[in-house]
Every structure is written in C-alpha cells, then in structure tokens.
Nucleic acid binder design. Structure first.
Length: 802
RNA sequence: GCCGGGGUGGUGAAAUGGUAUACACGAGAGACUUAAAAUCUCUUAUCCGCAAGGAUGUGUGGGUUCGAGUCCCACCCUCGGCACCA
C-alpha cells in the first residue's frame, strides 16, 4: 500500500534542502527552457481545483523537459496589487500590506504542497517596492518615448459611494455595493499608445499559439480599411464633421449624419431651440453603461441637433443628429448614415422618418427593395451620378480619390483597439511616477529617485478623489527640474502594467540597480512555454506583447515577442457546471490531498481529459488514479527481484515497454496527459500478469516521473537510484522494438466486418487474401458471389466487394 | 448577430479515412473474510437469440468512398469569446 503523505513530505524537504530546483541560470551547457505559468493573485481563499489544474500539469511539462536534457527555469510570483485587497481593507480595516503578506505566505505553502519545481529564490511580488520601482521605470520609458500621454476620459462614478467603480463593480447600471445608479465622470488620465503598435501586434510570425487566441487578438485589434469624409457644417461653424466609413461607395445615399453624445462637436453645432433636448439626451446617455448601450435589438434613440451639414460629394443638405448607437470610442465618434444600406441606420431612419435612398443594387439584373430592410452587400451603384453602374469595390477607391483631391476626405485604416488607460484612482497600486510643477509642467521622476514609495499611512475610505491625493507627505514634493514646489500624480497604475513585464524580471529577481540584467534576460527570454487561462487572450497577452515591443524598440532587449509557445488550460467543471462560490459547488483540493496525496490528485486532474479541454470533476473518479498509484507502487517496489527469464513473455514485455514509452511521450507532447496515463495503466495491468525485471522497472519509473514526481522518486531510491530521478533522462523508444510478430487483420465484405484472421507480419498479399477467403464467416458471405474488387491494406484489413 | 470550440455507452472519455467505445468511474456477479472495508477475477452500447450468430449504433438529414466518429453540404443543440464597430 502506497502511503503518500510521508513520502511526499520527505521528498519535498529533500528537494528544498538540496536546492534542486534553484535554477542554474548561468549554465549554458544545456539548452535553456523557460517554463512559465501565469502568476496568481494572492487571494485570501485557499487554492482551488482550478489553480491545481493549471499548475500541476504545467509542472509535469517542466519536469518532462528537464528529463529531456533542458536547463529548465520554472519561476513563480504573485500579482499582488489590485482591487480585492483594497476592498478588503475598506471593509475590515486590515492594511493591504498585511493581508497580502499573509496571503502570499499561505499560498506559497500551499503551492509548495503541489510538489512543483518552482524556484522560490526568484519569486516576484508586484507590490514589493523592489519590483514596482521598475514598473515605474517601465512607465517612464514609455513616457520618454512619447508613448504615454494624458487626456480626459470618462470613468464609472457612484455618486453615493463617492468613488470610481471598475466595470466589474457595475451591475445592471448600478453600484454593486449600494445599488445606486452609476453615472460617468470625466477625469484627466494617463494612456499608453498601444494603437501605435496595432499593425505590429497583428503579426504573429514565429509564435506557436492556439489559432483561436491569435484570431481573438486579431478581432480585438479590429483592423479595417475605409475612408474618412468631411462634412461642412452650415451656419458659420468653423469645425467640420469627420466621419469614418468602410462603405464610402454609399455616400450618395447618406441622408443624415450622427454624432456620439460625448462628441465635443455637439455643443458647437446644436441650435438654440434644440439645446435643451440635446443636453437632456446627453445626460441620459451618461447613465447608460456600455453594455446597455450596445445591447442587441435595443430600440434606437436620438435627438436632432437643429444643425445641417453638406455632403461633399453632391452638396446635399443633411440633418445632424445625436444618438447613442454611435460610440465615441470607435472611428471618429461620428457616422454618415445610409439607411438603405446599413441595418442600424435603417432602424433609426424608420423610427424618426428620415429619408431612405437606395444607391447600391445587386450585381446582375435582379432588383432588391430597401423598403423593408437594408441591403448591406456590395453591388453596383445607382442614383450616384457619374458612378452609376460602377462596382462597390471600384467606387470606394474612385470616390475617395475625388474626396482626397478636393480635400474633403482620404483613405484611412482604422482599428477597434483603443489606447490603454493606465490611471486608477485607487490606493493599492504602483504610484504613477510623475510630478506636476507650476512652471515646468509634468516632469518625470528621475530614475535614481525610484521607487516613488506608496505611503502606508493612508485613509482608503472613498472620499471622492484618489486616496493618495489626501496624503500631504506624499503629494508635496519639489520639482526635479527647477527645485520649486510641486505635486505628485495621485493616481496609481492599472495592475495589467505590473503583469506586462514580470516575465522579464524573473531571471534577475532581487536585482537592485535595474529592472533586469540584460545578458541574463537575453539568454532566458523569450519564454518557451507560457501556460494560463484563455480569458487573458485579449488583455494581458496583448499588453505583454506591446510592452515587450516597446522595450525592444528603445533598445533594452533584443527580442520583441515575449512568449514563443502558448497553451491555455481548460475549465474544470462540477457536474458540467462552472465552479463558483455563488453556486456553492467549489471543490477544495485539501481533503483529497490529505487522503490520496498530491501525485494522485495531479494524475487525476490530468486523466480527466485533454489539458486544453478541461474536464468534469468527480469525487469518485479520483479513486481510479489512487488505485493506479497503488498498483504501480506494488508492481515496482516488490522485493522480489524478478529475473528476465522469469518473466512469462519477456519479448512481449519489452515490446510493451517501448510501446508505452511511445504513447506517454506523444501524450505529454500533445498536452493530452489523459492518454499518457491511460497507456501507463494499460502497461501496469499487463505487467501485473507477466512480471517485470529490474531494468524495465527503471524505465517505467522514469516514464511516470513527470506525472507522479514523489512516487517516482521513492521507487527510484528503492531501486538503487542515486540522488534524484529528475537528473535522469526520459526514456526513449526503439521503433524496431515495436514490431509485432503477428498481426490481426480485419476482413470486410461490402464494407461490413465479417471476421478477423491473424497473420505473420510481412506475409505476402496472396497468402493473406487466401487466408481471408478461407475464414469461415467470410467464406459464407463469399459463397456463390463474384468478387468484383479486393482491397488489401497491409497490417490492417482486407475488403471484398461482391 | 458574428467568430471559435464541441456533440461518441449510465458517467469522464479513446480512436494517422481502415475491427467504434482504449483507459477509468459507476453498476452487476463471484473469490477472500465471522462480517465489512480494501484487494482480486469476470460481465457491462442497444435490440433479437439458450447459444452460435444477426440487426442497429458516434446530434439530425443528405453526399463522396470498397470503407466515414473522422472528409464535403445543409441543419439542430451546446459551451466560450466579441458584440449597435460605421
């Protein structure tokens, strides 16, 4: 009987004492392998099955690569800044510094119990000043490169709590805490110009990433080719309305223009009579969350501004409206409405009785009516003066060229991607290292003054401004440029900034005089394997690529993609449902670890299904993994030294070993650990019957080592192994050893299986066919029939068509 | 609505166009035991049949092929992501 608990404790202690997993960062004899998992947020809850499902198989992969001869670096840390610790502080008064320290310590303990190869000496904690000093350095690098700028942008505002809310804290347009209606407030905030990198971020060359993830990033970046068109405004307004469109071929069908409610042009064009109505509408739209505003099938709404604009292509006079179906965050915050050829414009025009003019018809002679619905396909132009009869694709180019010539428009590539808002009106984050001086304007904190320390003595109860703004000792400083009185920026940074460069820090963790050692980083980066949840496809993974590209362009690093291979773990469900606190179906690993040990728990997680697909947790299912561990233990740690000649079918055993090695390797490589474990189970079931000699035991123990590290170490030691099994090589297989002497051949008649025969490997086709015909069931079906066709697939089957 | 996964026994799931359901859970029967647990052995897709055997069967309907879970077309369901994107 395998007693997991003492064995696991023994080996975890021995690994730690020997510093087995302290990476040999300067060893260049072996090829490097940077095996990384997305670092956790140190929450107050215990580790859940989801953590294990992520970390344990990822560690098995690392152990496998180590046994394959790689110098594996497997670091871990904590993404410890962020909202939950601050909210916990507001609720309980416990300072985030304390709660985070406690949570990190406990989580470190629990993570160690998994039995991973983490190099704790390289731990990174994003809320440590020794780390965030360099997060601030990253900010300043972008600032100095002109990639950080300030502009006014709306935030969710709860008037009752007197605070800014994250999207997550807004539920159905109301504050999750006090349920009052959430509105918007404009604040001046810092942004990173990630849009400048949109084009480069679309290039995934050389990356081994899931197709799905690359596609999601492409959609998120949302490149489209179109045109901008300028509409002059009547009545002496100097500004013009610039719209972005991908369908400039429909310009003759534009019957009105729409501005987003937040568009600054609204105040400038609105007429005296319409001012009140328009302002009321703007107020109303502030209360609408983005989600509401973008709800499908929602009734369109809008207000006429009283203004008119001129269509530059034909001089038509069109009314200017305000409507919230136009978003300030996309394109130019204004659209030309062509109800005949756009569904949203069509619905709006129907409601407000605006004219609908068809200007495109399908190619060919068929007619289409735009009375009931918009025709949104490309086609051939009509009602478009000299462009009548021109195809949409051609018309788009020609019309834009004319507009360009008349300085009324141009070609434009547009992206959905918005610049990255990094300001947070929060306490628990890295302070933005900028100083505001009356005379010098905004001044970056000099590198040698970093970190800008987050003060500890702070009142984090919401008072309507950033908590740091109320700490005079923090705020009041002197200008690094002129020495005069100055104030600090009171906002902190988005935690995505912290996590967008931590992988660069790991090899140089604790380094005092810089963010990372250039040589070490060049050696270890890029990350060879990055494992984490698919929910990070568009935010974290895009930001990390962006920051890496920027640091490359500035000359700090000599690579510009951080993660070469990416794998997402699937979701562990319980009875088919996502585990969540609110459903109360969260499975805690603790009792299972106590009962079966971490190796069994790890193996069961891997056995549930393919890693990327996730699986369904079953309290009973784990017994299968436990029984297997026991059987493996019994077989391998038997005191009886079976000699090769005592094995009942030694040649069969050899073949079985090589076949299992092949299957396990293939399973691990494909992250289908379930099939690797199934192959091991099959082997044990077989070897229990035939017996197994010492040499083959040693192969099998090395084979299971990445999947059940403690168990393997213990058996390895029992079998006379020195030191650690993870310094041994992973077993290879010999294809020649896989060859069977005989093989079973399936026989089909008219595509239906009618029998099987066993023939020698390499038997002649005629011999096999004759044997197939002679098979008694087959013979019955062939009797009296003419065989029209015979198909012979060597080693597989014979098929007769009669 | 768009994009991307997926749909196979009672359950989790295997299967380079070539014997569908490996491996495991559960269930049933038996061995050991005073008994139970644990362990071991056997059975376990459905239907007909005492059996030998036969028929049906991978969401639905078509197609390609000697042969389709796998390829093609249409559809249904489900999960995830994005969503009034001009």
């Amino acid at each position: 009987m395998y007693e997991a608990s003492p064995v696991e404790k023994k080996w975890q202690k021995r690994w730690a004492d020997k510093g087995l997993y302290t990476a040999a960062l300067h060893d260049e004899k072996r090829p490097k392998y940077y095996n990384l998992v997305m670092f956790p947020y140190p929450s107050g809850d215990r580790l859940h099955v989801g953590h294990w499902y992520n970390y344990a198989p990822a560690d098995s992969w690392g152990r496998y690569m180590r046994m394959r001869g790689y110098n594996v670096f497997e670091p871990i840390g904590f993404d410890s800044f962020g909202l939950p610790a601050e909210n916990y502080a507001i609720k309980t008064g416990v300072h985030p510094v304390q709660s985070i320290a406690a949570n990190c310590a406990r989580m470190e303990q629990q993570l160690s119990a998994i039995g991973t190869m983490y190099d704790w000496s390289k731990k990174v904690v994003t809320s440590d000043p020794e780390y965030y000093a360099w997060t601030q350095w990253v900010f300043l690098q972008l600032y100095k490169k002109g990639l950080a700028y300030r502009k006014r942008a709306p935030v969710n505002w709860c008037p009752s709590c007197n605070t800014v809310l994250a999207n997550e804290q807004v539920v159905d347009g109301r504050c999750e805490r006090c349920k009052s209606e959430v509105t918007k407030r404009d604040l001046t905030q810092w942004f990173f110009k990630i849009r400048d990198y949109a084009e480069r971020l679309l290039n995934f060359e050389g990356l081994v990433w899931p197709e799905k993830t690359m596609l999601m990033q492409k959609h998120w970046i949302g490149r489209s080719e179109g045109s901008v068109v300028n509409f002059m405004i009547e009545g002496g307004v100097k500004e013009m309305i610039t719209v972005y469109t991908t369908r400039v071929d429909t310009l003759y069908g534009c019957t009105y223009v729409v501005l987003a409610p937040e568009n600054p042009l609204v105040e400038k064009v609105v007429s005296a009579e319409q001012r009140e109505a328009v302002q009321a509408y703007q107020e109303l739209s502030k209360k609408e969350t983005d989600i509401n505003r973008s709800a499908e099938g929602r009734e369109k709404s809008g207000v006429f501004t009283g203004a008119y604009a001129r269509n530059p292509i034909n001089g038509d006079r069109v009314p200017v409206w305000v409507a919230d179906y136009v978003l300030m965050t996309y394109g130019t915050g204004a659209v030309m409405a062509v109800p005949a050829h756009d569904e949203r414009d069509f619905a709006f025009a129907k409601k407000y009785e605006l004219p609908i003019i068809q200007v495109v018809k399908p190619a060919g002679s068929e007619k289409v009516s735009v009375k009931e619905m918009a025709f949104t396909n490309d086609g051939v132009l009509m009602n478009s003066e000299e462009f009548d009869g021109v195809e949409s694709v051609v018309a788009r180019r020609k019309i834009t060229e004319i507009l360009k010539h008349e300085e009324a428009g141009d070609f434009r590539v547009n992206y959905k991607l918005r610049d990255w808002l990094v300001s947070r009106q929060r306490y628990w984050g890295a302070p933005i290292p900028i100083i505001y001086c009356k005379d010098c304007g905004d001044v970056p904190v000099p590198d040698e003054q970093l970190p800008v320390l987050l003060p500890q003595n702070v009142d984090f109860i919401p008072r309507g401004v950033s908590p740091l703004a109320l700490v005079p000792e923090f705020m009041q400083t002197s200008c690094p440029r002129c020495g005069g009185k100055a104030e600090r920026e009171s906002d902190t940074m988005d935690t995505f900034v912290d996590s967008s460069w931590y992988f660069l820090r790991y090899p140089s963790a604790r380094m005092k005089d810089g963010p990372f050692d250039r040589e070490l980083t060049s050696h270890w980066m890029p990350v060879d394997m990055y494992i984490g949840g698919p929910e990070h496809a568009c935010m974290h993974l895009l930001y990390a690529r962006f920051i890496t590209m920027v640091l490359h362009d500035i000359g700090h690093i000599d690579f510009d993609e951080p993660f070469t291979r990416l794998v997402h773990q699937g979701l562990v469900t319980k009875d088919g449902a996502k585990m969540s606190k609110s459903k109360g179906n969260v499975v805690s690993p603790d009792e299972f670890i106590e009962r079966y040990g971490s190796d069994v728990f790890r193996m069961y997680l891997m056995f549930m299904g393919p890693f990327e697909a996730g699986g369904d947790w079953s309290d009973q299912g784990i017994t299968g993994a436990a029984r297997f561990a026991d059987r493996f233990w019994t077989l391998m740690s038997s005191r009886k030294q079976t000699q090769p000649e005592e094995v009942s079918d030694f040649r069969g055993l050899q073949r079985n070993v090589h076949r299992t090695v092949k299957k396990v390797r293939e399973g691990i490589e494909a992250f289908t650990f379930n099939t690797a474990i199934a192959a091991l189970m099959e082997f044990v079931n077989e070897a229990m019957k035939t017996g197994i000699d010492l040499e083959h035991r040693k192969i099998m123990v090395r084979l299971i080592a990445p999947l059940a590290p403690h168990l393997a170490e213990e058996i390895w030691e029992f079998l006379g192994g020195k030191s650690t099994i993870f310094d041994e090589s992973f077993p290879e297989f010999d294809p020649a050893m896989l060859i069977e002497e005989s093989v079973e051949i399936a026989i089909q008649v008219n595509g239906k299986l009618r029998g099987t025969i066993v023939v020698e490997v390499g038997a002649e086709k005629d011999t096999v066919l004759a044997a197939a015909r002679a098979e008694e069931h087959v013979a019955k079906y062939l009797e009296g029939a003419t065989v029209k066709k015979e198909i012979y697939v060597p080693g597989k089957l014979v098929s007769f068509v009669v």
